[in-house]
């Protein structure tokens, strides 16, 4: 397949993915905006006003980066897992498997689809957050880079979940029992400095902790983690997950009998 053919195939997958989540915008774009909006009202405004400061910032300012990141993580993941699994479920994935599209193009197309939804919801949440807090981005490069890399990581993770899933239950187990606890314990609502040493150590094993704090560093200019180390972890995750996805696609796991 020539490179321009590959580009057309890639663009086709991305276009199809974006068309899918925008077609069902009431299910994909509105609910996360409402949920995160409620977080701002309840935790940021009502509860936050009694908490005062966290990590040297007003509580509302402190949680805004974490909540934006939470939206990006959840939506990147759920877009890829639900889209790819529904292609499997309806057998429409066979259209792709029979066609001459290389595996890395298939994977890249779904990643960009996941990123598009993650970033779309992230942007909506950011706009909503402006009603509650004044955001002044301290480091645009770090802010944009970390959100893009995080979105790639969770799109890849969603893809692996979809490959192994055999039922709709299987695509909700990981987000409910793994992703949600990791996000809530990843320093979205609190500074790790408040934790006793043991839980501080446990938090350091949570990759989402690094992503949330690096993003917070980009926006607020303060973080609980070393930003360089956080970028290194993100890159390692991307390499491992991308390689795993390609290996699974080549083997036909969950796709070929």
């Amino acid at each position: 397949m020539f490179s321009n053919h590959k580009y057309i195939a890639f663009e086709t997958i991305v276009r199809r993915e974006i068309r899918r989540f925008t077609r069902i915008w009431l299910q994909t774009l509105v609910p996360p905006a409402i949920t995160i909006g409620l977080y701002f009202v309840i935790f940021g405004n009502l509860v936050g006003s009694r908490i005062g400061e966290m990590g040297g910032f007003q509580y509302m300012e402190f949680i805004v980066p974490g909540l934006i990141m939470m939206a990006v993580i959840q939506n990147s993941y759920s877009n890829v897992v639900s889209s790819f699994f529904s292609h499997k479920f309806q057998h429409s994935v066979e259209e792709l498997l029979v066609s001459p599209v290389p595996n890395y193009i298939i994977l890249s197309g779904f990643i960009v689809g996941g990123m598009a939804r993650g970033l779309a919801v992230g942007t909506i949440v950011t706009v909503i957050s402006l009603f509650f807090a004044d955001l002044e981005i301290q480091n645009l490069f770090i802010t944009v880079t970390v959100v893009l890399l995080t979105s790639i990581v969770f799109s890849l993770a969603g893809f692996i979940n979809a490959l192994f899933a055999n039922s709709f239950d299987d695509i909700s187990i990981i987000p409910t029992f793994v992703l949600a606890p990791l996000i809530y314990l990843g320093g979205v609502f609190y500074s790790v400095e408040l934790l006793p040493p043991f839980w501080k150590f446990i938090s350091a094993l949570n990759p989402i902790f690094y992503m949330v704090n690096t993003f917070r560093y980009g926006i607020l200019g303060a973080s609980d983690v070393d930003v360089t180390w956080a970028f290194f972890i993100l890159c390692v995750f991307i390499v491992i997950l991308f390689t795993s996805c390609i290996f699974l696609l080549r083997r036909g796991t969950g796709l070929r009998t």
Binding site: M1, E95, L96
Partner: peptide, 26 residues
């Protein structure tokens, strides 16, 4: 194939156009 294997939520034209895209047709 023997069984229907396209997305039931997509438009007829989009299904054929998407397949054309997979084969690299401008």
């Amino acid at each position: 194939p023997q069984e229907v294997n396209f997305s039931l939520f997509e438009k007829v034209r989009d299904i054929v156009m998407t397949q054309a895209g997979y084969y690299g047709l401008p």
